[in-house]
């Protein structure tokens, strides 16, 4: 059963990823991205990370991709991109070489290490996944216990991001009525 779910998720993800890279229209790319993200959410469920799977769907597939689509519509940049030409000389061959090299290196790592986790100490206590608590309860305890400070920092980061986005996109009204350059932010 698990193998079947994994196979379905893998096909979804890889097909979606190739679709993102290969589709000329950015709207299509965004939709392919949703497909990949749902594949990832499936893998999360397979690993009993139900909370994360939900967040993945809500935040990623919901909020972030919608944000992408909004921007695409807002700017009217849904024009198709000409993928057959490459203005930077040698960029594509080199990108292919780098991709192949990455594949070779990562493949070597995965294939040569017989089982990456054999012999490594398994966690216990509050952080153990095989306890009685649900996964959301476990995450809650760890996030607001051990990682409380990091969570606070994350809150600050989000606030800063929101303020930054507002500053970057604001059209400052000048006294002469002319729109200020966006670079003034």
């Amino acid at each position: 059963m698990a193998e079947a779910v994994f196979a379905v998720a893998a096909v979804l993800m890889l097909a979606g990823a190739i679709g993102v890279v290969a589709s000329r229209n950015p709207v299509h790319a965004a939709l392919f991205l949703v497909q990949t993200l749902i594949g990832v959410a499936l893998l999360f469920i397979l690993n009993d990370a139900h909370f994360l799977a939900a967040v993945q769907v809500v935040v990623y597939a919901g909020a972030i991709v919608i944000l992408f689509l909004f921007v695409i519509m807002l700017l009217g940049v849904d024009k198709a991109e000409e993928l057959r030409v490459e203005p930077i000389f040698g960029q594509r061959p080199l990108a292919a070489v780098v991709g192949a090299a990455l594949a070779a290196v990562l493949g070597t790592v995965i294939l040569t290490t017989a089982d990456v986790l054999s012999g490594i100490r398994q966690s216990g206590g509050e952080r153990a996944l095989d306890g009685e608590a649900t996964d959301i309860e476990r995450m809650g305890r760890v996030l607001f216990g051990e990682f409380a400070f990091a969570v606070e920092i994350t809150a600050a980061l989000l606030t800063i991001a929101v303020v930054g986005a507002v500053v970057l996109t604001r059209r400052a009204a000048r006294s002469d009525g002319a729109p200020a350059g966006s670079g003034s932010g």
Binding site: L94, A95, V98, A101, L102, V105
Partner: peptide, 13 residues
């Protein structure tokens, strides 16, 4: 980005 990727691959190697 390409150069960064080359560097990352070199580090991995």
């Amino acid at each position: 980005a390409l150069l960064t990727a080359v560097g990352a691959v070199a580090l991995l190697v």
